[in-house]
Simulated scan of single mutants.
Amino acid sequence: MRERHASRNARRAREFEAFVAGAAGRLLHAATLLTAEAPDANPRARRLLALSLAHTYADWDRLHGEDPYDRARQHLATRFARAAWHRYGALGRTRRHPAGPLGGLAPQERLLLVLRLYEGVAEEQTAALLGLPVERVRTICDRATAALLRPPPSPARPVTADARAATP
């Protein structure tokens, strides 16, 4: 009995290690996009990934044919949404602008863009995962995409006294 239990635990650990070896890089990139951190300095993304993988490992025996990557992505998204809600309130009404490529977007916009465009999750699935209407997911995703494609102009540099004197 004890050997069978040890054998099952070893098999479970090998399966999970194989899953992590194949999926961790992509999940870390998604977490880095969500947190809008720089890829080489992403402690929040790494913590988000570690917690999501730990939750997935805890559920490993209960997956019963379900895609472990999908489960890990769900944990990643919901954990990020919950943390953003607590940190910024209402998913980003008052926030600082992180430095990553999606840093100018609100956390909810980042979450929807990452799920829809980077991960390829359907609108209906994204809406169900986050408890939002499909139309709201579409609107936020469209607005975020437009903001990325047409960023606001950078503020003009102030004119100095030397520049004024140089103009005829």
Rank of each mutant, 00 (worst) to 15 (best):
Glu109Gly: 13
His97Asp: 13
His86Met: 10
Ala90Asp: 14
Leu91Trp: 14
Trp60Gly: 00
Arg116Met: 04
Pro101Thr: 15
Gly89Pro: 01
Val114Met: 06
Thr94Leu: 14
Gln108Asp: 12
Gln125Ala: 15
Leu91Asp: 13
Pro68Leu: 00
Glu66Asn: 02
Thr78Lys: 09
Leu112Glu: 06
Arg96Ala: 14
Ala72Cys: 06
His97Ile: 15
Glu66Arg: 12
Leu102Ile: 13
Gly104Met: 11
Glu123Val: 15
Asp70Gly: 10
Tyr118Thr: 12
Arg62Pro: 01
Gly89Val: 06
Pro98Leu: 09
Glu124Met: 06
Pro98Val: 09
Ala83Met: 07
Ala83Gly: 05
Gly92Phe: 05
Pro101His: 11
Arg116Tyr: 03
Gln125His: 10
Glu66Thr: 05
Trp60Asn: 00
Ala81Asp: 12
Thr94Gln: 15
Ala84Cys: 13
Ala99Leu: 14
Trp60Ala: 02
Leu112Val: 13
Val114Gln: 02
Leu117Pro: 00
Ala83Asn: 07
Ala81Gln: 11
Arg79Gln: 10
Gly103Glu: 09
Arg79Cys: 03
Ala99Glu: 15
Glu124Thr: 15
Glu124Gln: 12
Pro101Cys: 14
Arg79Asp: 09
Arg87Met: 04
Ala77Glu: 03
Glu124Leu: 09
His75Arg: 07
Gln74Cys: 02
Gln74Tyr: 05
Arg82Gln: 11
Pro107Arg: 10
Leu111Tyr: 08
Arg62Ser: 01
Arg110Cys: 14
Ala72Trp: 04
Glu123Ser: 07
Ala90Trp: 12
Leu63Lys: 00
Ala77Gln: 06
Pro68Asn: 06
Pro107Cys: 14
Ala99Pro: 08
